[in-house]
Amino acid sequence: MNRAAGLKGQLKAGKVYRREDLTKYSNAVDRHLAELVNEGTLEKVAQGLYYFPKQSVFGAVPPDDDTLVRSFLKDDNFLLTSPNSYNTLRIGTTQLYNKRVVYNRKRHGEVVLNGRKFYFHKTPYFPKKATPEFLLIDLVNHLDDLAEDRKMVLQNALSKAKTMNFNKLKYALREYGHSKTKKIFESTLAEMKPTEHVH
């Protein structure tokens, strides 16, 4: 057990580790990881991914979504969002979705991390931060996935577009809009053109 204790001594609470990152601390990494999981020191959050829980007065603190995704992708280059983010636009979406969407350049498909589902979308095009303009375009891209009255949401989205910064919206549409979304916004942007210089 000493060797596993040696491995444990290298770990920091609150961090997610990949199996391959730990091989340098152990000559029998799989056995030692299994021991640490059995004794409750580590939690296995996915295949080859382990979490060393941070403790609070209420017990173990689960890893945040960002930490899980960063460790899984071995990369900082992603945008983590959720259909719940659309609610900040105030255009009639009120549903709460238990869905996390990860725009990234490496992986595609559904992955379960620490018992939570993440939908990885492989795409070269996503911003560093989910701006209101990006969220509006993203919402219309995925209008068919929404549980609300889509016609009402789309009408509200087009009205909302007219209150936004023309240049930022045009950029978001060009960079992130699906071809169907670009068509939908065509006439709205044409109407907005006169206010192009207004900020």
Rank of each mutant, 00 (worst) to 15 (best):
N77P: 00
F78M: 11
F78V: 13
F78A: 10
L79H: 03
L79E: 05
L80P: 03
L80Y: 10
L80D: 05
L80T: 05
L80F: 09
L80S: 03
T81N: 04
S82N: 12
S82I: 13
S82Q: 13
N84K: 08
N84I: 07
N84S: 11
N84E: 11
N84A: 07
S85H: 12
S85W: 07
Y86Q: 01
Y86C: 01
N87I: 08
N87V: 06
N87H: 04
N87S: 15
N87Q: 15
N87G: 12
N87L: 06
N87M: 10
T88Y: 11
T88N: 14
T88G: 12
T88C: 06
L89E: 14
R90L: 11
R90H: 15
R90T: 08
R90D: 15
R90N: 15
R90W: 04
I91E: 12
I91W: 02
I91D: 11
I91Y: 07
I91M: 13
I91Q: 10
I91A: 11
G92S: 11
G92Y: 09
T93V: 15
T93Y: 00
T94E: 06
T94Y: 08
T94K: 08
T94I: 09
Q95M: 03
Q95G: 05
Q95V: 06
L96Q: 12
L96W: 10
L96G: 01
Y97A: 02
N98G: 14
N98V: 02
N98F: 01
N98W: 00
N98A: 07
N98E: 10
K99A: 10
K99L: 12
K99D: 06
K99I: 10
R100N: 14
R100D: 04
R100T: 07
V101S: 09
V101N: 08
V101W: 12
V102C: 06
V102M: 08
V102Q: 09
V102K: 09
V102E: 06
V102R: 09
Y103L: 12
N104E: 05
R105K: 15
R105S: 09
R105M: 07
K106V: 01
K106I: 04
K106E: 11
K106Q: 15
R107M: 02
R107D: 00
R107Y: 07
H108P: 00
H108T: 07
H108D: 08
G109V: 00
G109L: 01
